[in-house]
Write a protein that binds this DNA or RNA. Sequence first.
DNA 1: TTGAAAGCGTTACCAC
DNA 2: GTGGTAACGCTTTCAA
Lengths: 334, 334
Amino acid sequence: MAGIADVAALAGVSKSTASRALSGRGHVSATTRAKVVVAAETLGYVPSTTAVSLATGHTNSIGVIMPYVTRWFFAEVLEGVQQRLLEEGLDLTLYDAKPGTAARARVFDDFLARKRFDGLIAIGLEPEDRELERLLAIGCPLVSVVGIAGSVSVIAVDDDYATRRATEHLIGLGHESIAFLGGGGGEHWPQVERRRLEGYTAAMEDAGLAAHISHIRAAASLPASYNAAVDALGDVRSRPTGIVAVSDEVAVGGIIAARRLGIRVPGDLSVVGIDDHEYAEMFSLTTLRQVPREQGAAAVDLLLAHLADPEKPPQTIHMKARLIVRSSTAAPPE
Amino acid sequence: MAGIADVAALAGVSKSTASRALSGRGHVSATTRAKVVVAAETLGYVPSTTAVSLATGHTNSIGVIMPYVTRWFFAEVLEGVQQRLLEEGLDLTLYDAKPGTAARARVFDDFLARKRFDGLIAIGLEPEDRELERLLAIGCPLVSVVGIAGSVSVIAVDDDYATRRATEHLIGLGHESIAFLGGGGGEHWPQVERRRLEGYTAAMEDAGLAAHISHIRAAASLPASYNAAVDALGDVRSRPTGIVAVSDEVAVGGIIAARRLGIRVPGDLSVVGIDDHEYAEMFSLTTLRQVPREQGAAAVDLLLAHLADPEKPPQTIHMKARLIVRSSTAAPPE
DNA sequence: TTGAAAGCGTTACCAC
DNA sequence: GTGGTAACGCTTTCAA
């Protein structure tokens, strides 16, 4: 491996000049720079990142910590982050921290402390107090994409708003018996789901429909919500005319369950989701669109701003979901 | 930040002794070690990874390069890799390289050359010649999870076998008119899909059913295969009695399309997929199970072996998909 | 078993 | 504008 010393020798200059010529920092005459650049190219010189890091004190890498890499929202945000980082020439170091695992504890206790990164992006992390403490103790800029409230920069999505809007959409169509599908299905009940449930509840109460509030519990997956919906929609008498789902995948689970039971959507049952998932169009799903990829990109931009100006106070960027009306919602039967 | 010098000072020993005591390399008396360990703990000492890297020449990090982070197979493998790496205390640096993008070119030209890792895992990469060349030029151990044939260590899945087995399963049930769903839907037609198609074709030919070979093209997503299947299954006369799908998601697209058209599964149409996806059970899908997570873990193990013994020749580990019979397949009608 | 000192490959300060 | 040289924080050889 050719080092900068080799480049300098070939170009007939000193290491310092070669360094300046290549990094662009400091003044070098145009002719010298040209010589150095040519030398570097002939030698196929690539600076050692570790040496650069040691000398400069920064790693040119961003850490990303997230509880799931396989779920739609998380994977999409990750992709957005990765793309933006790539444009900036920054590496991405990934930490997977599934709630309640020993691996997660290790990530917080060992891996993060190693500080292989200049800044950290947390995606939907929802850290416990102890974990958040750890996160802050690292002492490097931190931006969260949802999952953390206040005290730290965050790309936030107004979750209550989304389900409130979804619920109001159904109410506006004339529905009264509206159930909320999803959330509270497993041991771990994420904040996002709770807030979405709250938005629904608030909208129902505001509309004087408190008596109709109904929560069909289901884990946040298509199969889980399908099963839950099959059970809940079985009885014609207790069946709602509208469903607000915690996410599009859950909404689709509900729609498939309805079809299975011979319930027409939207004829007998209106369904509205949140996300505008890849599947939404195929099921003509009315939904509240959020674009996680953009949230990821925004997180990088915000982090970069913090890196550029360490004094910059924490900032919250709100992203609002937008209602996309398709044909899974209509006026209630009769 | 406390450095090893501080630890050494507090323990009343030299830097070298402190280093040996902490890293476990070299001989240190038990009492000295204890003193050093205590000192390190009181100071909250965490070694600087960049300094360690510079001194030792290795980064304690593994690079992962993959074309998609959001698709099921890729995300699952990534999770497997991440988990295994975490157990080993190794960091993971992620490179997203979507085919045909400028970003991908940058990854190969700039990012990989930086060599921020001791070894590289490629997931379903299917590199072009130029890209593979680049990959090999890096000169560090490389393990591929599918996507690369020969010359390099690879965790392989026998794709022809899977679809061949799937096709034979249908033939065994008495089907003759069997179509292949998926593949060739977009500009980019991955090798995996081609090989799966070949397995189907070979099985059909071997069974003397060449005349019934039929390929319903569709991109590898649920909505795409749904649309393709709705078109293809519309005409009763030309409709096959069996479908071998390129993946479970595609199979599910086919099943939903069939339901839409009033075609009973498996009464009128048998469908078999590949993957044993999260959705398979919900649709009672007969499928060939592969467990990408295990493939990811296996890739890490193999890479670790290469790291331990640089002379170790490239090795191919075959993983065979296993037929899981559920109730989406049955004898053909009549 | 321990310590001194020489790297590891850059950058950055300070003279020239 | 350029070159020498001291860091950066650790590991590792070599002597003691």
